[in-house]
Design a protein around this nucleic acid. Sequence first.
DNA 1: GACTGATCATAG
DNA 2: CTATGATCAGTC
Length: 220
Amino acid sequence: MIHRPPPSSLADLQARADALRGVSLGVLAAELGAAIPEDARRSKGWIGQLVEAALGADGGSRPEPDFAGLGVELKTIPVTKDGRPRESTFVCTAPIEGAFEGAWLESRVRHKLAHVLWVPIHGDHEGTLELRTIGVPKLWVPNPEEDAALAADWLLLSELIAGGELHRINARLGAVMQLRPKGANAADYAWMIDDEGGWVRAVPYGFYLRTRFTAKLIAG
DNA sequence: GACTGATCATAG
DNA sequence: CTATGATCAGTC
């Protein structure tokens, strides 16, 4: 697949993203010489990687922003025909091995979300991948209210992990952000000692943004 | 429709 | 193996 060179500036990135509005994934894949997967269920990350290639994301699978030079993270987000997100959005994994990250300002979550390019993907998930289309991309920087909401959830959830209170972790916690399993499958776990001194299974967790939060971000 | 727990693919 | 990219599938 052809991978375009990285954008030279924020304006360049914005312009390239805007140029993708309304383009179908079939057309985009053809332009980049990418093969379209037969089975959408087995191609969960394909759309994200296609858009990365189209926009020249250079972060690769390293723990850096997708557009390293610009400090911008790219997120594709599946939306319904009225533009509402279908799914929550994965942010990053949560360090389960005791390593408390320190302050919110230094956290991986905040670094990931400092500057995000949201690219909505429209389309029926029963249909084929190539008929889905790209919506209106939006560059986002958290405003003070959004940052405060994220910080509050991050503190709540991080303290549960740091305190070994794994049995209290579930996806219901957090107003705008939650912790959910992020492993290969249910067999993906480690054993560790929790706050009560007993051995417990520790599945890998990830931070996810709730649908109702991302809905506000990509609207208007 | 929203939500939760589980799962799939690829790169380095 | 760990990071990246997320969506699936069943239930509420």
